[in-house]
Structure formats: structure tokens, C-alpha cells
Simulated assay, not measured.
Amino acid sequence: MAMWPAQLQRHIFAELDSTNAEARRHLEQGAQADAWFMAHSQTAARGRRGRPWHAPAGNFMASLLLKLDMPAAAAAQRSFVAALALHDTLVALTGRGDIFALKWPNDVLARGQKLAGILLETAGTGARVDHLIIGIGVNLAHAPGLDAVEPGAMTPVSLQQASGISVAPEAFLNSLAPNFAQREAQLRDAGFAAIRQSWLERAANLGAPITARLGDRVETGIFETLDENGALLLRSATGTQTIAAADIYF
């Protein structure tokens, strides 16, 4: 297993309200160093759009606090970095590269079901970001029941169910942190084009029909590719649309 990245702090808690909230508290207290925050249990976990996130003990719940100085659009590319790092980690720990895929914009699938989610929160001034918090939840041991997910949402699954392999949360973090550092170095050295290509090679439903829910409207078409900034290109009867944010269904 790769070594823990140099100069990267690690904070492990028995219980927190939310690892993203804990990372923000450290930031408000003047923390500057990059750090991971992991909790064995969360009492107020949330996903995208403020939705509750199922967070029982045995699952992976962690957030990475990064110090940055860049436009918001560039900071948002870390969602793809995190997704690739998650995929790298899952394959390394299970040896099952065939069962995992990446779902735009920020989910990881196992056997076509939702295994993990990513939530980005930023801090900065104007259009620039000086700190980024990347929250990650992975259903290692437990998956919520269908009664806990929205109608039409993807069925959740645990890593144990999908692969038959049990992974402890701290072991998962010890693999994820160096994998994220390696993907972050790829972004820095080769640019987003390299990250984009790696993500597309692992994409779920690329070239297939999908439905995008954008606020008060729904668009259906073929998932063609990602543009140079990571937006989804959807080909429909009315032409190709560039979608920067949406809930995707297939």
C-alpha cells in the first residue's frame, strides 16, 4: 500500500455531526494545512442539495480540506479527481475493476448501483476559491433501504454486497489518501484533459440514453462525452446540450 502523503494531516473521530462541518470548523479556527477528517459515525451527514446521507458505523465517512488559490471552475475539477481516486482505491482493495464505474457528476457505482457519493464545498472571495472541502461517503458495510432514497433514485449497494469483501474505514482512508494525492499530481502536471480522459474510460452509460433533471425541466438524450471543463454533453432531438449541473438517471 502507498505511503501516507507527506505534510498531510489526519484526524480520526469516533463520532461527528459531519466531517464536512468539522473541516469547516478547523478552517474557521485558522487551520491552513491540508487534512483528512474521518468519523466512524455521523449524526447529521448530508449529500448533494442538502439531502440526508445514510451514515452508520462501518461505512466510510471522511472529508478532505485543501488549501487552494484558483477560480471556482478549476476547484470544481477536484470532483473528478476524487471520483478517480475512489475508483483506484476500490479496485486496489478488491481486485475487481470490472464492477465499478463513475456516474456523472459525482457518484461511484458498483454493479450498476450507487456505492459512493462526493460533495464539494468551497470557501473564498468572489469567483476565486481559497479552500475546498471534499466530502466522501462510501457504503462499505451497509447500504440504506429503498425507503430511504428518493423515488426514481439509483438503488444503493454496499461494497460488502457488491464484492463480498469487507474493508475497515481506516484501511480505506489509508489507501484513498495516497490515491487522491497521485490523481491531484496528475491534474497539476498533465492538466484536466488527462483527468477527463481517465474519467471517461470509467464512465457509466457513456454513449447510452440518460435523463437529466435540471430544476424544473427534464432532458433525455445520449450521453456523448464531457467537454473540456467537465460539463456533460447530451445529444437529444433538438441538438447537443452542455449541462453543467443536473441529477442524472438511467
Rank of each mutant, 00 (worst) to 15 (best):
E219P: 00
D247A: 15
S18C: 10
T211C: 09
L140M: 00
A181Q: 01
G50H: 14
A55E: 12
S166Y: 06
R49P: 11
R183Y: 00
A85F: 01
N106Y: 11
W53Q: 08
H131W: 10
L27V: 07
H40T: 02
G230N: 01
A244I: 10
H54V: 07
L146K: 13
A62M: 06
W36R: 03
L232W: 06
L84E: 03
V81C: 07
R48M: 07
P178D: 00
V167K: 05
W36Y: 05
I133L: 14
L66W: 09
A168V: 02
I195R: 04
R202D: 01
R51H: 15
R78L: 00
L119G: 04
P178F: 00
H54I: 08
P156R: 13
A153T: 13
F180S: 05
W53L: 11
A116T: 03
H87P: 02
I99G: 07
A168M: 07
T220N: 08
L102H: 06
L119N: 08
S18P: 11
L214Y: 10
L68F: 03
I248S: 06
Q161S: 13
I248F: 12
R202S: 01
A123C: 13
A75G: 08
A72S: 12
L234M: 05
L16D: 06
A141Q: 15
V81M: 02
S41L: 13
L132W: 06
L68D: 03
T240N: 09
A101L: 08
A2C: 12
M61G: 12
D227Q: 01
H131R: 14
E28P: 01
D227W: 03
N229H: 05
P105Q: 12
P105M: 11
V149N: 12
N139G: 04
A21Y: 12
G30V: 09
R196K: 14
W199D: 05
A33S: 01
D189K: 01
Q160I: 09
V167S: 07
T155C: 08
A44K: 15
L27D: 06
D98Y: 13
A185F: 02
W53N: 08
A57Q: 13
P56D: 03
Q9K: 03
L234K: 05
